Simulated scan of single mutants.
Amino acid sequence: MADVAAAAGVSGQTVSRVVNESPRVDPETRRRVEQAMTDLGYRPHRAARALRTGRTQAIGLVVSTLASVGNSRMLQAIADAAATRGYTLTVVTSAAGDDIADAFERLHDQGVDGAIVLNEATARARGASVPAGLAVVVVDSPADSRFSVVQTDHAGGARAATAHLLELGHPTVHHLAGPAGSFAADERARGWREALHAAGAPEPEVLRGEWTAASGYAAAAGLDPAATALFSANDQMALGALRALADAGRDVPGAVSVVGFDDVADAADYRPPLTTVRQDFDALGAAAVTALVAAIDGEGSSVETLPATLVVRASTARR
């Protein structure tokens, strides 16, 4: 650091401010210091910084599984957002039935500054013991005074999907829900139900899957033969439903209109291209990391809800 200071013609304190991204450095001075760092091959020493500041610039992610598309997308989004802020990321899986407190302890032992808990794991986080000093943010969860919460407006997106199908003239909309106990699945079912009630439409019995295309196929095989509209709680289950309907000789959208949720990268290439509700995974991941950094800095808990947007494609049609 002293060599960088000498090369840039500044004090060691100024170099420290540049390294720690302090706003108290004018742009020209920052440019000179960064150029000196590049010329000299200077890299901050993370271990030394951690001893001085008490922070490791590392965060953890607790997830029940990475097999689902939504969780994988969120992992990528959080990893990108963490890297942009100069944080490393450690991932710990905590399957259903595991004590999530063990995952918190493992992360705490690795010296992370905080942890993000993702989707299905959040229900177990609410009652878990958290090590002192470990900041926690949960993604997709009811409000909890101990943690900050970042979530998509699942219910709002589901209401928009269901209303779209009703506006096309379908007498009601059947629902292929996600796993019982999932906050996102429950919220999407709530939005579907609210849209039906608001329109005075009958509420069919819920079909249920496990977020996978295979479970969507199995569930949709039991769809009422009189059904003309189906809202699936995610795009993967919608993919399985499309195959089940095709195997049953029911054209989409001629006989049945189908809407998904998530807008995964392949949704526009389904056959037919899938009408779906778009979650902004990049914005959700960035918001989670921002909330965690705020929690690490000692700020109070907060709740942030991001909008979900209906994307209309060829899998829905007027009845």
Results as ranks from 00 to 15, higher is better:
residue 211 W to T: 07
residue 48 A to V: 07
residue 274 L to T: 03
residue 286 A to F: 02
residue 45 H to Y: 04
residue 174 H to E: 02
residue 32 R to G: 04
residue 100 I to Y: 03
residue 62 V to F: 09
residue 8 A to D: 15
residue 41 G to D: 02
residue 125 A to W: 05
residue 20 N to R: 01
residue 110 Q to D: 13
residue 118 L to F: 06
residue 27 P to L: 10
residue 9 G to C: 11
residue 245 L to K: 10
residue 194 E to F: 09
residue 289 V to F: 07
residue 211 W to Q: 09
residue 293 V to H: 11
residue 243 R to V: 12
residue 175 H to M: 01
residue 176 L to N: 00
residue 1 M to Q: 12
residue 260 G to A: 15
residue 68 S to Q: 13
residue 129 S to R: 07
residue 111 G to T: 05
residue 166 L to K: 05
residue 72 S to W: 11
residue 56 T to A: 15
residue 78 I to P: 10
residue 154 H to T: 09
residue 66 L to T: 04
residue 52 R to I: 06
residue 83 A to E: 04
residue 222 G to E: 03
residue 293 V to G: 12
residue 124 R to M: 14
residue 88 T to H: 14
residue 313 R to G: 13
residue 262 D to Q: 12
residue 236 Q to H: 13
residue 119 N to F: 15
residue 140 D to G: 11
residue 203 E to K: 14
residue 199 A to W: 00
residue 78 I to K: 08
residue 196 L to W: 11
residue 6 A to Y: 12
residue 24 R to Q: 07
residue 175 H to S: 06
residue 21 E to W: 10
residue 181 G to L: 05
residue 17 R to N: 14
residue 24 R to P: 04
residue 95 A to E: 04
residue 203 E to H: 09
residue 127 G to D: 08
residue 191 G to Q: 15
residue 253 P to S: 13
residue 13 Q to V: 15
residue 183 F to H: 06
residue 70 G to C: 09
residue 116 I to S: 03
residue 116 I to Y: 01
residue 46 R to N: 01
residue 304 E to W: 09
residue 4 V to P: 10
residue 110 Q to S: 08
residue 67 A to W: 11
residue 93 T to M: 06
residue 153 D to A: 10
residue 277 V to E: 12
residue 268 A to K: 08
residue 5 A to M: 14
residue 125 A to R: 12
residue 128 A to M: 15
residue 241 A to G: 14
residue 144 D to C: 10
residue 265 A to V: 01
residue 264 V to F: 14
residue 140 D to E: 08
residue 164 H to I: 00
residue 151 Q to H: 08
residue 148 S to L: 05
residue 126 R to L: 12
residue 206 V to G: 00
residue 143 A to M: 06
residue 22 S to I: 00
residue 123 A to N: 06
residue 48 A to L: 02
residue 105 E to H: 01
residue 93 T to I: 05
residue 194 E to A: 11
residue 45 H to I: 02
residue 288 A to M: 08
residue 86 G to T: 02
residue 33 V to P: 04
residue 263 D to C: 00
residue 192 W to T: 14
residue 234 N to L: 13
residue 55 R to P: 05
residue 265 A to C: 09
residue 284 L to C: 06
residue 94 S to A: 06
residue 11 S to G: 15
residue 240 G to M: 14
residue 148 S to Q: 07
residue 11 S to K: 12
residue 189 A to M: 12
residue 236 Q to V: 07
residue 197 H to I: 07
residue 310 L to S: 07
residue 101 A to W: 03
residue 196 L to H: 06
residue 238 A to I: 14
residue 216 G to E: 06
residue 245 L to D: 12
residue 318 R to V: 10
residue 136 V to T: 09
residue 287 A to M: 10
residue 26 D to F: 07
residue 181 G to S: 11
residue 73 R to Q: 12
residue 61 L to Q: 00
residue 281 F to R: 00
residue 259 V to S: 14
residue 242 L to K: 10
residue 55 R to I: 02
residue 247 D to C: 11
residue 135 A to D: 00
residue 90 T to L: 02
residue 14 T to K: 00
residue 281 F to D: 13
residue 18 V to W: 11
residue 15 V to M: 06
residue 127 G to Q: 13
residue 27 P to N: 02
